[in-house]
Amino acid sequence: MTSSTAAPIVSGAGINFSFGVGELRKQILFDVEFAIQPGEVVLLMGPSGSGKTTLLTLIAGLRTLQAGQLNVLGHSLAGASRAELLALRRKIGFIFQAHNLLPYLTALQNVQMMFDLHPEVSPAEGRERAVRILEQVGLGERMLYYISKLSGGQRQRVAVARALVCNPEIVLADEPTAALDGASGREVVNLLQSLAREHQRPILMVTHDARVVDIADRIITMQDGRLINDLQATENLTRMSGIHA
């Protein structure tokens, strides 16, 4: 189902990326090539410093591409303008390692504010959609709570709702379970997966968490800035756990 003939939603080739200049220059990514198909849930795994997060920020249009080709949601990122990167980011649902919710807003307001990026949605409709998605993530009772009054798992569920409420074309998640205990992490990942599946939305998730590999359609593994493995999850899960043990 994933190795379809449809055009990939994200595709990259020959991506090199370095931080610093001159003597201090340090190359992070080496000749990375990959693709994500529509509707696919892809995990990006690998040890710390392997370049996963840097690759994620490149896909998200948060860093300037230095070399290679990268196409995301129909935008070619080589030489893209700031305005174009901004337009791209508005089509992406972001989930961060720490929930990154605004502490001065309630759960509902945190979700609802995303519609400020989409003026075509009326305030009433925005509110309605925010309420609905918070009910879907099981926070119908706690919508009016401030973030400080919610548990870690609940916060990350608000973050999931915020990422999905505006119907993004792809969800980028950076270790969404890192700050959570096993059960809460599981719950968040399940939610994310079911919501994304429901709307046929692809997910690219950077994770260390071997406990969640079962949600993946495909797992990309990186090491020292190189892509060392790109496996269909169905191929061999045992082999996977071997690599990440």
Binding site: L102, Y104, L105, Q109, Q112, M113, D116, P123, R127
Partner: peptide
């Protein structure tokens, strides 16, 4: 297009 008065809430 302030639906939520973010400035004031902050």
């Amino acid at each position: 297009s302030q639906r939520i008065p973010l400035a004031w809430l902050q």
